[in-house]
Simulated assay, not measured.
Amino acid sequence: MVPFALGGMAAFAVAAVILLLAHGPSDWLRTAVAGLLVGIPGLITMLRHDANRRRRRALSHPEFRVTDPG
């Protein structure tokens, strides 16, 4: 789910920049900025949930290994 959250935040950021540069309607600009800002706590929550899930799975299933692709 993290890539979807990042994609949504990126879309809101791009929309905000376009609206800012084009002097678009201020209501739309505020909506784009709000979407970006609301996405930050959601992203943090998902990252913490994924880390805790990996930790719990490693404790309950010792044969389970998570490899970091990066």
Rank of each mutant, 00 (worst) to 15 (best):
A11R: 10
L43N: 02
L43I: 06
F12V: 01
R57L: 10
L47Q: 11
I18F: 11
V14Q: 04
P69G: 12
L36S: 05
V38D: 05
R53A: 08
N52E: 09
V14M: 07
L59K: 14
R57F: 04
I18Q: 06
M46H: 06
M46G: 03
H61T: 11
F64V: 07
L29C: 01
S26K: 12
M9A: 10
R48Q: 02
L47W: 03
A13C: 06
M46P: 01
R30Y: 04
L37K: 04
P41Q: 08
V66M: 05
I18K: 10
D68E: 15
F64A: 15
V38T: 13
N52I: 03
L43F: 15
M46Y: 09
T67G: 04
G42L: 15
P41V: 14
V66T: 09
L20P: 00
F64G: 00
P3W: 03
W28R: 12
L37P: 00
A58K: 11
G35R: 02
A51W: 12
S26H: 05
L36R: 10
V2K: 11
L43P: 02
T31S: 10
A5G: 09
D27F: 11
L36I: 04
G8W: 01
A32R: 01
N52Y: 09
A34L: 15
E63M: 05
D27C: 05
G39I: 03
W28F: 12
F4N: 09
P69R: 14
L29P: 00
A58R: 14
D50I: 13
V2Q: 08
A32W: 01
V14Y: 07
N52R: 14
V66P: 00
R30Q: 07
R53T: 07
A34P: 01
L21T: 06
A10M: 10
